[in-house]
Amino acid sequence: MLEFILMFIIIVSAILALIQSDLLKAAILTGFSGGAIAVLFQILLAPDVALTQAIVSAAIVPVFIALAVKKTRRDDN
């Protein structure tokens, strides 16, 4: 059952990240989606990929986005 919940989280947080007007929230939601994918990888029998994905997608990519937002602007226009 867990995997279906995870898939739901992935899709919903991806959509929410894209309709957010605050870009910092979008960064956090991207991290949610990436972390859920990492757990899904663990369920799909790929623990090594899950570790990498957890580091890259749930931590590094949101930090990149947050940095870019901090150096530019936070609102969506």
């Binding site: 991806a14 894209l18 991207t30 870019a68 937002v69």
Partner: peptide, 12 residues
């Protein structure tokens, strides 16, 4: 920035 986030979703 949202475009780039979208691109990261394609990759994932």
């Amino acid at each position: 920035i949202k475009k780039v986030i979208g691109i990261s979703f394609i990759e994932e």
